[in-house]
Amino acid sequence: MVEDTAVFGTRNGAKLNATVFDLERCGFMKTAFAQSSSEVDEYLQIQVPSVTKHHLEVRAAETREPIRVVVLRALKAYGVTVPDEAISDRRKRRPA
């Protein structure tokens, strides 16, 4: 069986490699067992220009939604498959 490995950091200039199994076992990857595999959220980390991040923050403030929702709406508008139920504010609501 071939396992996928990923570089997940460096230490003293050396790359730290781990398999997906290693990362799950050590708690680096969260799995939602209550959801089916097609509904599990994955982590995605990207670097964007600071002006882009600032614009996303402004749009999120204007719409009073998290940046995650703004980005998912934009991806869906671009034609990327995004389930409707994924585009929701998952933050806890404060009692009025």
Rank of each mutant, 00 (worst) to 15 (best):
S50P: 07
S36M: 04
K15P: 04
T52V: 13
Q45N: 10
F21K: 15
S36C: 05
V51D: 03
L23A: 05
E24S: 10
S37K: 10
R25S: 15
T31M: 10
V20H: 07
Q35S: 05
T52D: 05
S50E: 11
L16E: 11
A34R: 04
M29R: 01
L44C: 04
P49D: 08
E42V: 11
C26I: 06
Q45P: 02
R25V: 09
A32G: 09
V40L: 06
T52E: 07
F21D: 13
T31P: 04
T19S: 15
S37I: 08
S37M: 09
E42W: 12
V48Q: 02
A18I: 05
K15Q: 15
S38D: 12
T19H: 07
V20M: 12
L44P: 00
T19L: 06
V51E: 10
S37N: 09
E24V: 06
Q45A: 12
F28D: 00
F33T: 10
K30W: 08
V48G: 02
D22E: 15
A18C: 14
N17Q: 15
T52H: 13
A18D: 00
D41A: 13
M29I: 14
D22P: 03
S37P: 06
V48W: 02
V51G: 05
F33I: 09
T31L: 13
V51A: 05
A18S: 04
E39C: 05
A32E: 07
L44N: 03
F33S: 13
M29A: 04
V48C: 06
Q47C: 08
Y43N: 07
T19P: 02
A18Q: 03
V20L: 14
T52S: 07
T31S: 12
A34V: 02
C26Q: 13
R25P: 03
N17W: 15
Q35V: 04
N17H: 15
N17M: 15
S38W: 06
I46E: 03
E42P: 02
S50I: 01
T52I: 12
V40Q: 11
F33R: 13
E39M: 09
E39N: 08
L23R: 01
N17R: 11
V48L: 10
M29E: 01
F28W: 12
R25D: 07
Q35I: 02
E39H: 04
L23Q: 01
D22Y: 01
C26P: 00
L23N: 02
F21G: 09
A32W: 11
C26H: 12
A32C: 10
D41I: 08
Y43E: 05
T19W: 00
Y43R: 10
R25H: 14
F28M: 05
S36T: 08
V51L: 06
Q47S: 13
I46C: 08
T31D: 09
E42T: 09
A18Y: 02
R25Y: 05
Q35N: 08
E42R: 13
